[in-house]
Design a protein around this nucleic acid. Structure first.
Length: 807
RNA sequence: GCCGAUGUGGCGGAAUUGGCAGACGCACCAGACUCAAAAUCUGGCGGGAAACCAUGUGGGUUCGAGUCCCACCAUCGGUACCA
């Protein structure tokens, strides 16, 4: 009987004490760098979702070692973050203490599953030796003008009087006390990621990410091409600047809309005759949280600004200006020209406030559309539009009209071509204790000054009070002894920045630190960076394919620009795994009581069974449902593997009856691993075991190869069996098996014989048999069904199929 | 609404990418072993008496469609007025 407890312990002790899987410092070897998203060490411990991703890359890493690569497969902990801080506040235990405890637990759990991580390179984002370099990167960003202060709204709980993270705001109210959450203006550090928007799109062409990941990145950045157009404000030299992707519809612009935040109101308040009404609207809009603005108020609201009007530059008509919160201050110019006939939102707004709707595009595919009928909805299709009622654009397709009108605008200095992105700059400040201190000081005389690099790391002060500050201030704002310092520039009195960095900071560059984790001179040495960059294969969750991936690509590109890293992109290849749901098909959560604890799985079924099951559970990139019956089935499979010892016979070569199967299996498993089709690899192993059981025989050569193929999936049992059957070398150090293509091909093939595409029978033929011989044989086999019928057509595909069409 | 997935036996899923639908596993049934049970081993297992019918629904292309095209339905994930 297979005792997985004993066997797994034995091999783990050996691997982790000897450092079997540690990367070598031999920079002449060919390298492979595999990366998994390092976990946040939560109090709940490891989730069964973690081993899905980790086992997958562990399998690839183990295979790469056997293929002769110097493999870097590191692990660390992304340990700053909200849960530790909230737990600390509630239970009055310092977050460092809980974090250390959780990390310890995670480490034990990860080791119990037998991952081939290089534990000598373990990192932790809360370690000052680590965040020293996170702070260093921030200072470089600041020095290059990519970090700046701006006033940005934060979520502010009206009950607790603290700033909240987005995830703490649930349906517009505070997650903890249920009070309404409003937006509060606060001066924050921002990172200018928008400067990299175009490169973040363009360089996707050079990396091997799943298409859906690339699509998500592109959508998030949200590039759009259009024009900025000037609309003169009647009776002034001034103009209102708008952004539009449809400059071909300017003839149909019947009014303008500005965002509540727009500075136009301040500028012309003397001329506005209904200023009170406008100010009232502004105030109401400001009080609304993001949630109210977007979720609750699909219904458009707005107020006309009376006393000022704009002039349509192409029709020269005077049109009214409205204020409405469906126009966002943060996108484009914060003002739009409204073309109700050809924009859904403008159409709704115009209908509600009875504004004129002027059709200037007709549908080229609709004979009824002559531009004279009343529209029931906006016509927005760019592909099928023809300009009408549009002066010099009449008759042009929408695309031609866009080109022509931009030329016209540029020629008459009325506007210009413009590209916009949805992507916003990155709000980098958090009013929190448990994060990296932002290494900046403020001096009355010199303004913001970075902490000198030789003084890094700027350590998070070890304080007892990390309760949130008053009015959304950071907890650090209460610690005067830490805040007060001297200006590095003039030596005068200065105060430290009290906000900390977001959790994204430490994870934006951690893959670089793994290359040289103990370096106290640089974030990593030039040689290490040159050798290990880029990450060859990065696997993680779909939930991180927008923000984390984008942020780290941005930091990497910046580090490339200042000559720190040698590659433009951090990750050569990115894949993602599907989620694991509870056995009831719902997301695992304590409240639903469907959480599966990996410790219990290792205890009851063993690490190998857990690993094999998580690979067998279904297609790797898709959501899967946990099943206790199935993990039991995987343990049964491993027991059958163990008992194959009883059939062992001598033999240094594959026996004739298994030669084909062995060669085919090597081929199949090798390619399955590369394509992450782990589930069919496991099926292959099971089929092989069934065959060995049928024969009640397996020779040494066959057993050794079988064990080696299975080793990346189930490393413990295979090493143990290999030792027992007298394998000379440990599997971890052996070369990956090779196959002979010729020996994967069967000599005889069964092919279906069809009549009109329906299978009637199958015949067995020799491979590459002569066409006429096959046809003869097939016709003989279905003689009764074709006798006396006229054969109209015959389709013969060599080694595949023979199909007869009869009359 | 938009973007991205997914839909195949009782269940999880497979299908060389247009060529025998249901590999492999679970569950279930039967047999062997056992005083008996568990474990293990062996066999069976989409529906239908059969012709045949079956891959979410309806159409199409093809000698041939789970796979390609068109329209729709359902489920899941992401996102939220981006001009």
């Amino acid at each position: 009987m297979y005792n997985f407890k004993e066997v797994e312990k034995k091999w783990q002790d050996k691997w982790y004490s000897e450092g079997t899987f540690n990367a070598k410092n031999d920079y002449t070897m060919k390298k492979w760098y595999g990366l998994i998203e390092f976990p946040y060490p939560s109090g709940q411990g490891l989730h069964v979702g973690h081993p899905r991703s980790y086992t997958a890359l562990d399998i690839i890493a183990r295979k790469r070692r056997m293929q002769g690569y110097n493999v870097l497969f590191p692990i660390g902990f992304d340990a700053f973050g909200l849960p530790a801080e909230n737990y600390a506040i509630k239970n009055h235990i310092h977050p460092k203490i809980t974090t250390d405890k959780n990390v310890h637990h995670f480490r034990e759990q990860l080791k119990s599953i037998g991952f081939s991580f290089d534990w000598s390179r373990e990192i932790n984002t809360t370690d000052p030796d680590y965040y020293k370099w996170t702070q260093w990167i921030f200072i470089q960003l600041y020095k290059h003008g990519l970090a700046y202060k701006a006033t940005m709204p934060i979520n502010f709980c009206t009950g607790c009087k603290v700033g909240l993270a987005n995830e703490e705001v649930v349906n517009g109210v505070c997650e903890r006390c249920g009070s309404p959450v409003v937006q509060k203006e606060k001066s924050q550090w921002m990172l200018r990621i928008t400067k990299y928007a175009q490169r973040l799109i363009d360089d996707l062409d050079d990396v091997d990410y799943l298409d859906k990941i690339k699509a998500q990145q592109r959508n998030w950045i949200g590039r759009s091409e259009g024009a900025e157009v000037k609309f003169e404000i009647s009776g002034t030299e001034d103009y209102l600047l708008v952004y539009t992707t449809r400059p071909d519809t300017i003839f149909g612009a019947t009014y303008m809309v500005i965002a509540p935040e727009h500075k136009l109101i301040e500028k012309y308040k003397d001329r506005i005759t209904n200023l009170d009404e406008v100010e009232e609207y502004k105030k109401k809009a400001a009080l609304k949280s993001d949630f109210e603005r977007s979720e609750l108020n699909k219904d458009k609201t707005g107020v006309e600004i009376k006393g000022i009007k704009a002039v349509n530059p192409l029709t020269n008509e005077e049109i009214p200006i409205w204020i409405s919160d469906y126009v966002l201050g943060s996108y484009g110019t914060g003002a739009i020209m409204a073309v109700p006939a050809h924009d859904t939102r403008d159409f709704e707004f115009a209908k509600k406030f009875n504004l004129p709707i002027k059709q200037v595009i007709r549908d080229k595919n609709s004979s009824e559309d002559d531009g004279n009928k009343e529209l029931t909805e906006a016509f927005t299709d760019v592909e099928n539009g023809i300009a009408i009622n549009s002066g010099f654009l009449n008759g042009l397709t929408s695309k031609e009209a866009i080109k022509k009108v931009i030329e016209y605008l540029e020629e008459h200095k009325l506007g210009e071509k413009k590209v916009n992105y949805k992507l916003r700059d990155w709000v980098f400040s958090r009013q929190r204790y448990w994060g990296e201190p932002i290494p900046m000081v403020y001096c009355e005389k010199c303004g913001w000054v970075p902490v000198p690099e030789e003084e890094l790391p700027l350590k998070l002060p070890d304080v007892k009070d990390y309760e949130p500050g008053e009015n959304g201030e950071s907890p650090l704002a209460k610690h005067e002894e830490w805040i007060n310092t001297t200006c590095p520039h003039c030596g005068g009195k200065a105060r430290r920045e009290t906000d900390t960095m977001p959790q994204w900071a430490g994870s934006s560059w951690y893959y670089l630190r793994y290359m040289d984790p103990h370096n106290d001179k640089e974030l990593a040495s030039k040689e290490a960076l040159e050798y290990w960059s880029p990450v060859d294969w990065y696997n993680g969750g779909m939930e991180h394919t927008t923000l984390h991936l984008l942020y780290s690509r941005f930091w990497h590109k910046f580090l490339y620009d200042i000559g720190v890293v040698p590659t433009k992109e951090p990750y050569a290849k990115r894949t993602s795994h599907g989620m694991i749901l509870g056995s009831n098909g719902e997301k695992m959560s304590k409240s639903k009581g469907n959480v599966v604890n990996p410790d219990e799985m290792v205890r009851d079924y063993g690490a190998d069974a857990l690993r094999v099951y998580e690979m067998f559970i279904g297609p790797f990139d898709q959501t899967a449902q946990w099943s206790m019956d199935s993990i039991r089935g995987c343990l049964k499979f491993l027991d059958r593997v163990w008992n194959m010892q009883d059939f062992l016979v001598d033999g240094d070569e594959y026996s004739p009856k298994f030669e084909k199967m062995m060669n085919k299996a090597i081929k199949k498993v090798s390619s399955d691993i590369e394509e992450m089709k782990f589930n069919t690899s496991v099926a292959t192993f099971m089929t092989m075991v069934n065959e060995f059981y049928k024969a009640k025989e397996i020779n040494k050569a066959e057993f050794e190869t079988f064990l080696q193929l299975l080793n990346p999936f189930a490393p413990h049992i295979t090493e143990e069996l290999n030792q027992r059957i007298g394998g000379k070398e440990e599997l971890a150090y052996k070369a990956w098996p090779t196959y002979d293509e010729a020996k994967t091909i069967e000599d005889t093939i069964e092919i279906p014989v069809q009549i009109k595409g329906k299978v009637k029978t199958t015949i067995t033929i020799n491979k590459d048999e002569d066409e006429e011989v096959v046809k003869e044989k097939a016709k003989e086999a279905i003689k009764s069904q074709i006798e006396g019928k006229k054969i109209i057509k015959e389709i013969y595909v060599k080694n595949k199929i023979y199909n007869i069409v009869i009359g």
